[in-house]
Each structure stands twice: as C-alpha cells, then as structure tokens.
Simulated scan of single mutants.
Amino acid sequence: MTTSLREAWAALPSRLRLLEPVTFSDAEWSLLERLHESFNDREAHTRLPLAIARFRDAAVREIFERARQFDDVVTVNIDERWEERVAASAGDAMAPWVRLYNEEVDAMMDVLVPPARYRKEHYAYGRFVFPEPHGLHTDHSLEDPAAGGEPICIARIETLGTHYVDGDYRTQDPETQSMLTALRYWIEVPEGQPEDVFAELLKRGTLKTIPVNHVMLMVAGNGAENAQVTQHVSARPPEGGLHSAFFQRQYRLVPAR
C-alpha cells in the first residue's frame, strides 16, 4: 500500500529530537501536494515561504544561549571538510545543533519534495549588527547556472526574523517595484530613502516577516518561467545589535527515475 503524503508527515515526529513538524491547514496541504507533485510550480511559489516545523523550546534556549556567548558573528560554510575542521578545532559551539538540523530537515524534505538532494549550506551565530545594509536578495545556485527553482529551508532563532516579499511579483505596480529597487540596492528612489521605504512596505504588508524559531520552506535557484525565487531582506537590528542564530540549507532537484 502506498503511504500518502499526509500519513508520511504524521509519522515524522517520532523520528525527530530538535524539530516539531507543524500541523498544516487544508489550504497548506493543497499547496504542499502541488509542490510534492512538481516543485517548479510558479503559482505555488507565490504562496511561499511556509513554516514546516518549529524548534522545540529546550533547543531554542540552548541554541540562543550559545549564540549569546559571541559578540561577533561566526559564519560557517559547510563543505566536504566541515566535519574534519570541527573535529580538529576547539569545537564549533553550534555544530551539534547543525547536525540535528540537517538530519531532521532532510527527513522532512524526503517527505515533502522527494527529488530534493542536498546542495549547500551555511549557518551563522553571534551578535548581528549589520555595519552595512544587507539588501533585498535571493539565494542563487551559481554552481549550476541551469538550475531553476530549488527548495531551501531557513531558520532564525529568537530574534531578527527575516522579511520577504509577499505574493506574485508580476502583479506589482510600478511604484512598488521602484520601492523594492530601493531595498535591493539600498538607494534613494522617488518614493523615499531606503529606510523609509522599508518601514512603509512592512506597514503595507508587501513585506512580511518570517517567524523566528521555525523552519521555513522557500524557493532558491536562478529562476525560470515556472519558478518564483523568494526575495528576502535581513531584519534591521537596533543599535548595538542583537544575538541570534541562523541556519540555511539548500537543495537541488534530481530527475525522477
């Protein structure tokens, strides 16, 4: 008997220690069933990001406490020598949680997007101050120029929930497009300075905020006619910065056998 998508999702919690899969609404299940059938579905992409899991409370406390031990941001790119470097050094304070995150998010993606295979990852933790603006951007697949839309799962712990552009980009009016240009390049536009534009787009709901302590499914890649890559912008910390931790794991899509 073939296990349904909903049955496979319901069976996940017993396998997980770090994350708790969320309970989806009927509308969210409809979206996920479309992505499960074919991830590159542009109309479905316009309804992402979507929270797929939350971090357990005890894990949030431990991860955040470790992040608070650092007054600078530690950024780590994972490659084939990551485990070797962690073992050879005095130890990476976040490595145990990263391993769990990787294992459990991979298990979730096996259910939701079966063709997804790990492509790349980085994570960061410490006190985020952003001495220079990090503007509106997407996550590309520069190592694979032919790649279209690809799944990516990100999470922010406790503070600095990332903002994203909501809805279908093709339906935006010229004024909104101009305002988003201000955030992309952090420049003045006829509608105002980027800081003021940022606040106005949040007020309008054009920019929405990803909840902290959740794993969010978004779209990365280089874009294609049947894909809408998620545009997002880092939250602005107050003067003096805020401690947080950030996890980002991106997948490629393999052809169905």
Rank of each mutant, 00 (worst) to 15 (best):
S4R: 04
E7A: 14
A8N: 06
A8T: 01
L12E: 02
L18I: 04
V22Y: 09
S25D: 05
E28F: 08
R42H: 03
A44C: 01
L48A: 02
A58L: 10
A59N: 02
R61S: 12
E62Q: 11
E83R: 14
R85W: 11
A88C: 06
A90K: 15
N102S: 13
E104Y: 00
M108G: 06
P115G: 00
R117T: 03
F128I: 04
F130K: 02
E132D: 04
H140V: 12
H140W: 07
H140T: 15
S141G: 03
L142H: 01
D144F: 15
G149L: 09
I152Y: 09
I157V: 15
G161D: 04
V165R: 04
Y169C: 01
T171K: 14
P174L: 15
T176H: 07
T176F: 07
Q177F: 11
S178M: 15
S178P: 05
M179G: 04
T181K: 11
I187Y: 08
E191N: 09
D196T: 06
F198A: 04
E200C: 06
T206L: 15
I210E: 12
P211Y: 13
V215T: 06
M216L: 14
L217M: 08
M218T: 10
V219G: 09
G223L: 05
N226S: 10
Q228E: 12
G241E: 12
S244C: 11
S244P: 01
A245G: 05
Y251E: 02
R252D: 12
R257F: 13
R257D: 12
